[in-house]
Design a binder for these strands. Sequence first.
DNA 1: TATCAAGGCTACTGAGCATTAGCCTTCCAG
DNA 2: CTGGAAGGCTAATGCTCAGTAGCCTTGATA
Lengths: 203, 203
Amino acid sequence: MSGSDRAVLARPQLSPRGRAIRDAALKLFAERGYEATTTTEIGAAVGIRGPSLYKHVSSKQDLLLAIMLDAMDVLHDVHALAVAGVDDVADRLRRAVEAHVRFHTRHRLEAFVGNREIRSLDEANRAVVVARRSSYERLIRALIEEGVAASRFHVASVKLASYALLDLGMGVAAWYREDGDLSEDEIVYTYGRFALTLVGAAG
Amino acid sequence: MSGSDRAVLARPQLSPRGRAIRDAALKLFAERGYEATTTTEIGAAVGIRGPSLYKHVSSKQDLLLAIMLDAMDVLHDVHALAVAGVDDVADRLRRAVEAHVRFHTRHRLEAFVGNREIRSLDEANRAVVVARRSSYERLIRALIEEGVAASRFHVASVKLASYALLDLGMGVAAWYREDGDLSEDEIVYTYGRFALTLVGAAG
DNA sequence: TATCAAGGCTACTGAGCATTAGCCTTCCAG
DNA sequence: CTGGAAGGCTAATGCTCAGTAGCCTTGATA
């Protein structure tokens, strides 16, 4: 887990203004999309003009990349934390899905942008983000495979089951609202149970 | 069902070139996104220059709107067809979900663009599309409510269950490939069964 | 054969955009 | 009190677009 510790502990420190800019950009990217968001708008959201952003940030593209990479780090971290030290494979899957869903409520903007704007990254950056996402997807699939191998899970297709679980999380990021009438815990626990029935977990 | 008949029978006839342009635009919108797609590219895809598009199409925005509206019509149609004449509520739900998922494989580009590019529609057009989508979502939710009322389904939250089912379809549109190793029927039937376990359908 | 519509094309318009240049103020360190 | 860095600003640069104007070819019709 030294990798995720690094991500947790050594996440680069941003100046307060830098943080504000990134937050504003995140909100705008989520709302209007990356291409449709102008540097003027991002600036306005933190009370400065567009060109002044460049005193804090190297480019709009880097802003997007940083947002996505940070989010992927957090996602890996919460997954690792959720399954660490848990032996039973069904428990591990349930906890992994709970962490997955909770991430998508707590960081819904990051998740939303991360899913929708990969296309807006240029080639090289996209490759990095896609690789990191695939590595996460493999973790979930490996859990299901393990349960199947142990005859604890029974699925028609491991791939299909893992897609389904991952997609449910992404869906949450699209519709969840903090002030909605579904509480975070309600969603998390319900989806955790969905996951187990979905893989046909015995007992 | 006269509404959906209208949609099926009276879908406006497009010239072959018009069709080709719409298809090309759909593919490009799905690949690069609406904002990132230029009229020059759409033109090139059908062998003409960007400005010549305007001999067939009134604007890029209208192209997007037409794609989305047509897709929503088809989705409503396949739903209506799937549940028509089926009495048992569990059967109706399963068939509705199967139709939902099949739509998202057969029309994955339309579904993909329809979900991701609503933001790119201007205010008025967006309102129309959103309304039509909500009406579809209500159909699914009503099915679940009906099963719950009849004590055939048992869910923690109707809303959550319907979100989950709808999101699974959207997920399919994101990863399904005709030449992938999961067949359309395999996905459709598996998700149909998912749906029933997910709503805790008895028998 | 003359006409005309359909459907191409190039050139142009007008707008918007990310980013850079270069200037000015503020404020802290020496 | 002075020098310089930090962080604003306006103006300008260079590019990319959607959409329009207006011209030309083709081919069917009358």
